[in-house]
Write a protein that binds this DNA or RNA. Sequence first.
DNA 1: GACCAGGCACATC
DNA 2: GATGTGCATGGT
Length: 221
Amino acid sequence: MKKKLTVNILYKELLRHFGKQYWWPGETREEIIIGAVLTQNTNWANVEKAINNLKKNDCISLGKIVKLHKKKLSELIKPSGYFNIKAERLKSLAEFFTNSFDYNLKKWEKIDVYKLREQLLKVKGIGEETADSILNYAFDKKIFVVDAYTKRLNIRHRLIDGKSTYSELQKSFAEHLKGDVEDYKELHALIVMLGKNYCKTKPRCDVCPLNKYYKVVGNGL
DNA sequence: GACCAGGCACATC
DNA sequence: GATGTGCATGGT
């Protein structure tokens, strides 16, 4: 690693700038799980439309999705894009959860977090980010979610070695971030906020919320 | 009309 | 292990 990730200062600055995000947007555990698949490479506004369709049809649960025809499911989630693939992924994931422990998700809470992660990754269509989003936000596990924004943040601001893999980035954040599961949720949400609003075309600009961060830790560039 | 958005699986080198 | 491609909608 080139540089020690001063992640606590980063967190503090982002929190000060954006305020608490209270993620994940979702009313129930199952809605969060469903949203985690729907948001794959898609903006949240489109996901919301899909979720609203599911709600209107009383289908915002894994038990309902298991029984739903794939074609009907595709129609409902159409606004989120990749609807055929996502319908398949949702079916697989719904089968995974409903077939285990008598469809009692509370029982999953007691499983070792890494064991559950391993199981989730075996489900077709569930990669590291989706699995970690489910673990962190739906199951309140202390697992840091790395996404496109986190990778971009790392490269643009050179937090750690630019060629870091998903697990290297995740490990680095986990090693340095002081806090509980709620802080893990917040920091990921804040990094998404930063990515949506800044750092789109160039590493730094005059209005970058991270400028104060650099005043504290020095110029990493 | 081009480009982007809170990925993933699969093929190919 | 790195890189390329298909999957698809809706906002800017």
